[in-house]
Design a protein around this nucleic acid. Structure first.
Lengths: 196, 196, 196, 196
DNA sequence: GATGAATGAGCCTTCATTCAT
DNA sequence: AATGAATGAAGGCTCATTCAT
């Protein structure tokens, strides 16, 4: 009688170990041996569950993106549908939520971002995510701005989010969510002022 | 007497080949064998000139940063010292100059940025560069803004530059310098308007 | 469950292959590739079991020293505790036992001896062994000689053992245990005669 | 007009550098690059003068052996032809002369000894040297001992010389010529006593 | 005579993956 | 389901040697 439900236990355990390994030694140093050691399992099991190292990396990236998506949706849920500035701030806040600015997650994310340039599957995931952020922002902005302007401000906001996040990735103290939000809020206020 | 002046020929040749390799297969795939093949030399020469692969990578990053620095300084040279908006636009333009948005350079840069998280030497280079951009921007902004505000706007501008650049790295068409500059110019105008 | 008990099979197998390789092409020529080929395993396994080539070499030296120690102890076991000349001859005989004068072992030993001059770990092993021989001899000699004299004769005997063994390493026919023992026995008789 | 006499200057310079390199990093670590650096010349010159690294090593060994031979002959020159114990002591003294017990020379010698097991040319040199020592000793001993006995004592003496020398190679303080001579002198006295 | 740039084979090691148990 | 022994290709690096200058 095989143990049941093992995949559901093992998979998150290995994804977590992958991020811990990337945090510690970088994507290049995150060998199957190291990850499995961190997870307390044997190296062979990674092929068993993920069909190879690549499958594990892809699942790890998916997991990070899923988390972000959930966090943003959660933040949005508590804001009135018509409070546009509030909803955009919620999206921004979701992107700088404590989980997202956790050093382990930031390092994993940037590692994957760089890797995605040469890996079609990761590239696709990354593009979907990028577009989702833009689409969320545009959707809200369209309620108060003309389409062109909404697209323009959405791109500016997305760039600010990613830029602050990128610069924070190499800063010893990590990302400061407060500062991030103050810069972006200021940007939005100046963009929306004429229309509100 | 041996061939002279070879270092001056070989070093840029190898740096160029390194960027070409990273462009093609990513930093992880850029092996000494591939790089040397692209440069049309033997693998051993990399040790001869750079003391190892790491030395070559470091020099490649330095080369990219040097280029950026030169480009920005050049752009600044043609703008009047007191034309603050013009000078900041020059800094921005320097960051989106054709060489800097060349796909090969963008990929190299992002690869190194990710790598820098786990490599003290690259980290140092990256930090110096980050701080230089901020310092350039702050220096100009201080001429028209109070110190606090100058620091604030400098961070916003730097974030926009890096964010647009980062998002462009994964966009099939690459970075659009025109769009980049229009977003950033708009940001600056709104920030400076009250003070001019 | 993986194959069990493999380390106990693989380790001696690889140590044996190391000595065979040294016998054939010398320590300098004994590459990991050659050793693993001789053992009929893949090169990677040496790291698996010994953490690297150096670990294998160290274990090989330990194995040779262990063998010597066992052989000497065995030879001593069959001689009466009070028969000093007999016990010393047993020590000598142990050092010229068939295993010890096997060409493969002699070459391995001399190779390590030379290597030990520049390798702290091998040096330590070699020193321990040297001192053990001296200490064994001195211990027996003290039963019939004054301390000073015992130390003196022990050094002479040890030098004879190593000298004959060293000279034999380069002699086409190898070491002649019979001749070795006759030279050393003669030395001992002359040294002990006045005291017996 | 070419520089004349260069070979006579360069060759000893390189031989000396070879011994210094072996002393410092062992035979295995003594690369052409290191040796040439120590000699203050370019790596290419070793091929020029010695036809390759092997030629340099062979010449280095020859140089050591030549030195020994000269030293022994010098020591012998000052002893009366008929003073057999004196002449043998002179041979022993020659073998423990200050140059011969210099750490650099001892290490070089032992390194070559080990190497000689797998290098026909070095082997030949080593054998010639071994036999010369034996032949010198036997020649003197025959004046006072029957042929058989002379051969026997010669072998014992040679073994003592090499054994003390070998054991001293790994002793931190190096070889003690005084102690060496006292052990060997004692041996000889006991062997010759009945015949004098 | 002398240099040192350049080569390329060979070294040790790492690593994702496979597979007998 | 899970292990970890074993593989073998690929990696970076060292090094004796060659050769244009």
């Amino acid at each position: 009688m095989p143990k049941v439900g093992m995949p559901e236990i093992r998979k998150p355990q290995l994804v977590e170990a992958t991020m811990a390994a990337i945090d510690e030694v970088g994507l290049a140093g995150a060998s199957v041996a190291l990850i499995s050691r961190k997870a307390g399992v044997s190296p062979g099991i990674i092929n068993h569950y993920f069909g190879g190292k690549h499958g594990l990396l892809e699942e790890t990236m998916r997991s990070v993106l899923r988390q972000l998506s959930h966090t943003v949706i959660e933040h949005l849920a508590s804001v009135d549908k018509n409070d546009v500035p509030g909803r955009i701030k919620a999206i921004v806040a979701g992107n700088f939520d404590s989980y997202q600015v956790d050093n382990k997650v930031v390092k994993t994310w940037l590692s994957f971002w760089a890797q995605a340039m040469h890996d079609p599957q990761l590239h696709r995931l990354q593009r979907v995510n990028e577009k989702r952020l833009l689409s969320h922002l545009r959707h809200e902005l369209k309620q108060v701005l003309p389409t062109d302007k909404a697209q323009f401000v959405a791109q500016g906001t997305a760039a600010l989010i990613d830029g602050i996040w990128l610069r924070g990735a190499l800063t010893p103290g990590g990302i400061s969510p407060t500062q991030a939000q103050s810069i972006i809020t200021d940007y939005l206020e100046k963009q929306l002022a004429p229309y509100l």
